[in-house]
Design a binder for these strands. Sequence first.
DNA 1: TTGTAGGCGTTATCAC
DNA 2: GTGATAACGCCTACAA
Lengths: 338, 338
Amino acid sequence: MDKKITIYDLAKALGVSAGTVSRSLNNHRSISDKTKQRVIAKANELGYQTNKFAVNLSTQKSNTIGVIVPKLNSIFMSDVLAGIEKTVNEAGYNLIISQSLEMMEKEKLNAKTLYNSGVDALLVSLAYDTNDFDHFAYYIRHNIPLIFLDRVHNLPNCSTIIINNKQAGFEATEHLIEQGCKNLLCISGNLKRNVYSERLMGFKEALAKHQMKFKKSNCLETELDPNDVPKVINYIKNQKQAIDGLFVASDTFAAHCIKALKKEHFRIPEDIKIIGFNNDPISELVTPPLSTINYPGYEMGVLAGQSVISQLNGSLDLQPANSITLRHQLIIRESTHI
Amino acid sequence: MDKKITIYDLAKALGVSAGTVSRSLNNHRSISDKTKQRVIAKANELGYQTNKFAVNLSTQKSNTIGVIVPKLNSIFMSDVLAGIEKTVNEAGYNLIISQSLEMMEKEKLNAKTLYNSGVDALLVSLAYDTNDFDHFAYYIRHNIPLIFLDRVHNLPNCSTIIINNKQAGFEATEHLIEQGCKNLLCISGNLKRNVYSERLMGFKEALAKHQMKFKKSNCLETELDPNDVPKVINYIKNQKQAIDGLFVASDTFAAHCIKALKKEHFRIPEDIKIIGFNNDPISELVTPPLSTINYPGYEMGVLAGQSVISQLNGSLDLQPANSITLRHQLIIRESTHI
DNA sequence: TTGTAGGCGTTATCAC
DNA sequence: GTGATAACGCCTACAA
């Protein structure tokens, strides 16, 4: 019961050739139903399991899709991954997941490892500091589908899946303005990353539209890490003109800010209105509930999965840089609205 | 530049045999340094990439570890995964991750697929309704390391990595009692799962220790889903004797309960004290901050990774059902403490 | 220290 | 419809 049994064992047991067994198992036309039945019955009887190693070598495919994300333990990313996994699994693919830990060097390593592992496609959300893209050259050169999501870079023939961060930033900011805010602060993440820089662009555009001048002091770049909270609070307290509206690039960080501001006796939304980003579960559970932008991670994952599958099936023609933009949504709660 | 180059190409280019190339690349002793250098140089020059398919077939190993979790998009699980990924990646392994979506049937499918993919080991956290374990028989029979974490089942020769849920439940409950609660309610998850049933056992034990009788009405089984909140609130409001202490098996659900209870004008902690479980980020951000049990997901992942690696390296002797219990920790915040 | 050759388990291209 | 047989690319005794 322990030895692995191969198509040769089946062939011998049935008195046919290995080729016939292989074709039967793969439901090849040109094999009689009767033979197929016999083979399959025997396979079950002996507990035959196909050896993927051999299949892979023979077909040069792995039925495996690689994923590189900055961090596994983010609520948004795990939503994305859940969506990807569900979709590609239904299509018979497995997922090899690795994290760059926000370091380009690790990302390069991962890309190389995954390439060598023979993934049939690669999905990537970029690290903070990724500034060159040679590590993806293999993929492009060998026509392995390469899809960027959320934190993207435009490369020839690579799809990207994003939301319109600029527009979302614009809407969030305009909402604050419409609520009467006169002096806004954008608390951004690392501006080297497209998602944050685009939100800031939207922020600026909203100011411009409403004849409010953007000054450098209207934006504070942080790592969106809880450790940055004191810095933010100090910054707010030290402005000459009181800040009355906060656009924070992450809900969790916004929640931390709310907590700290309340401790400093700021009233929210009366003294200062706050809007976050992502619609994390936390946004509706803090006090006051946090206005935010819904950022559909799961749907993004599903779309990424569908996109990669259709590329692998060739059902999607290689359109030059096919880009998908998901719909976001402004969610108004009490942190911006009395 | 497009064609894949093999050790034969290198061999020809260097005027040596393929065997020599193979051994050089694998840094085999018994190959002169000089030859190694030459081979490696040529490999780099020609852009040689090892073909994992062939290596796998030849060695019958994949350098890949399978993971099955109930859901990818849970804050705890993504912490666990982050820990696993980091650890096994450093040891040169890749991770194939799949989710059972809390369904045994899917779990079986995943287990089979991963087996066929030739994973070198399998890490599993069980689905809610898993009640037979035949799908793991292959692994055991073929001596493929199988490790359960968090939601576990005891199988011969399989390690388990857990925290002491019973003890944690006990401590959480005793803390409520010590804060003066007289009529407790345990809001549990699905009691078919060890983690929840054990917490309940701890709950009962704490009651017993303090001469409080456990009645059926002291426990409410839920799915810990936000949709269950109204049911919980009604339950609480309809008890003859007012409930003054809540032990909730998940922080996020506890946060939802807090929000709903506040809306019903319960004062926390004055009228009702609440303790959660997990130490999710949300626990310190709700108002009032939530007492909880720290449940170290990342560390659990790291340990699981180390455990699997050492089993693969044979450095850990096959101890019969080696079980690791992580330390948990009671965290007291304002939801139980005036 | 290096070369030779068989094996890993399939798939695929020919024949028959 | 089915059977040979050659890939697929690497590893590894066994020889030399």
